[in-house]
Every structure is written in C-alpha cells, then in structure tokens.
C-alpha cells in the first residue's frame, strides 16, 4: 500500500496583527499519514483545529512549521513550503477538496462548475460535462437546475454541486470538509457510497464528518486532533 499523504510535526499559529499582535496557537506537532484506499477522519470538538489542518493540507492556510508530503507525479512534494505554482499543479492533479460551502462564480452553470476540475485535469470538455451530468443525477440534483448558476440554490443543492465537483476527478488524495452537513438522509447515503468507491479505487481520503452515522460508515481510522493541542505555555 502506498502512502500518498504524510503530515509530520505541523504547527499553526494565527497572529492577529489588528488585535495588537495577539498570537493564537491552533495546532502543534500534527503528525499522521493516510494510505491509498483509506479514509482517515479528523476527530475532536469544534475549535480543535480540524478545519485548519485540512486547509493547510490543501495549501489554503500557511503552515508555520512541519511538513506536508504528498506524492505528486511520482515525486514527493512538501506542500508546507511549495511555491504557489506547485501548489496549483498539485491541486489540479493530486489533491482534491470538497469544502463546506460552495464559492459561487457569477453566471457559471452548475454543470460547468462540476465539469471544470475535470477539464483542468485534461478531460475533453464534452466528456467532462457528460460525467458531470451523471454525478449530478446520482446526487439527485433536479435536471432543470443543471444549466443555472447555483447562486440561488438551497444549501443542500449547493452542497451537492460541491460534492460532484470534488468527486469528478481521479485525484489520488481527496479532502472532505463536512461534505454531508446539509444533506438529507438519501443523499448522505449516496455520498457514503461515493466515498466507498473512491476508497476502492485507491484514493486516500482525509475528512471531517460531524455526522456520527456517516463517520462510522466511512472512517477507517480516526485522527484525534486534541492530541495536537498546543501547549499553553508562553
């Protein structure tokens, strides 16, 4: 089994310059690994830093110390220190991300939003749209919505667009930030199936799931984030 994601001794502190330089340590010495075909779940109470860890792994938050090693194009890349251009390339082909909220782009249809990462990965636009339509159908998004920009969609509808967008590619690493939060039971179950398929396909998944039911169905291992709580010294 390969291990496409290895995080070691990762630390993050927010410095609030507008509040007189107050330092807010978030996590310290975060270390874990996710193997191919495994779904690891970040566990712990709100505010423990689960989301921050996920965002650092995606390159969305800066890491203060430590390493985030991903296997990209057969080589090891440290996302904690990689230049922006490398991070973009890693995101395009290696690390996928399903965020909690959809960032809506004006005027772009739901179908195109879903197809976009597949096109960026190198799939023909028409094939990507066909695949996007299949994903949206599977997630029970009414077909009449596909051609509309999701700005006016409900929370659950936006979330499904977001999930389809994250799952459409064959990225070896997929990060999931509460993908089922605003979904009904039937659609939650679809997502659980999709996660199982990703695992079977050898994808390494790292996620945050507040829904205990879903968590129990998908998790192969739980990473207890409270272990990485910063020492309250200094």
């Amino acid at each position: 089994m390969t291990t496409p994601l290895v995080v070691s001794e990762l630390s993050k502190t927010f410095t609030m310059h507008l509040q007189g330089g107050v330092r807010l340590p978030v996590v310290e010495n975060v270390s874990f690994a996710v193997r191919a075909g495994e779904c690891a779940v970040l566990g712990g109470p709100s505010g423990a830093g689960k989301s921050s860890i996920l965002k650092m792994v995606y390159g969305n938050y800066a890491a203060d110390a430590g390493q985030i090693i991903v296997t990209h194009d057969g080589a090891l890349v440290d996302l904690a220190t990689a230049d922006p251009r490398t991070v973009i390339d890693v995101r395009r082909r290696t690390v996928g991300y399903v965020s909690q909220f959809l960032r809506v782009v004006p005027r772009v249809s739901a179908l195109d939003i879903v197809a976009e990462p597949a096109i960026a990965e190198g799939i023909e636009p028409e094939a990507a749209r066909t695949r996007a339509a299949a994903m949206l159908a599977r997630l029970n998004l009414p077909e009449r919505l596909w051609r509309l920009p999701p700005a006016t969609f409900s929370g659950g509808e936006q979330q499904r667009v977001n999930i389809a967008r994250g799952f459409i590619t064959a990225h070896p690493i997929l990060l999931l930030d509460e993908p089922t939060a605003s979904l009904d039971r039937a659609n939650r179950q679809v997502v659980v199936e999709m996660i199982a398929e990703k695992k079977a396909a050898g994808t390494a998944l790292l996620g945050i799931f507040h829904d205990q039911d879903v968590r129990e169905q998908v998790a192969d291992s739980i990473i207890d984030v409270t272990e990485f709580a910063p020492a309250r010294a200094a």
Binding site: M16, H17, L18, K55, N60, Y61, A62, V87
Partner: peptide, 18 residues
C-alpha cells in the same frame, strides 16, 4: 505574496490582514 486563496484566507502581513 503567495497563492491567492492563501493570502486572502490566511493573510500573514499586518497590512494584508487589514
């Protein structure tokens, strides 16, 4: 300087935070 979403979501410099 940095990745756009990184700079906007996790700004480091005091001026960027402002």
């Amino acid at each position: 300087t940095g990745l756009t979403d990184r700079v906007l979501d996790d700004p480091q410099a005091p001026y960027t935070q402002l």
